[in-house]
Amino acid sequence: MDFSGLKGIVKHITQITDTNEEFECAEGKSILGAMVELGRKGITSGCHGGGCGVCKVQILKGDVKTENMSRAHVSADEAASGVVLACKAYPRSAVVLTVTGLLHKNIVRGANAKSSK
């Protein structure tokens, strides 16, 4: 059961295009934090501190607020084009994103391994 509506908590739908997944992210929660809390997968979960870079995603639609993200993983150019670390991105509207971090690499690697067999 989800009673958060009673408390007037604002939630934003987050959509992951790669896996066609969707979950609700309460305002004030990071995309990755909300996903992990719901036991969902789709974005790789790592340090939740913006330091390790495994949760890197590209925001395709929607508005997010961000906090400190490691420059080793998100360059200034990338940041300007909507690349964020999902553990440090807080939705302010419905969001559509695509995964560019470790998981994507794994998916791509898995696909390559399969196709080369």
């Binding site: 340090c47 939740h48 501190g49 913006g50 330091g51 400190n68």
Partner: peptide
């Protein structure tokens, strides 16, 4: 666990 910058 991780520190606030993600250092384990």
């Amino acid at each position: 666990f991780f520190d606030p910058s993600g250092n384990r």
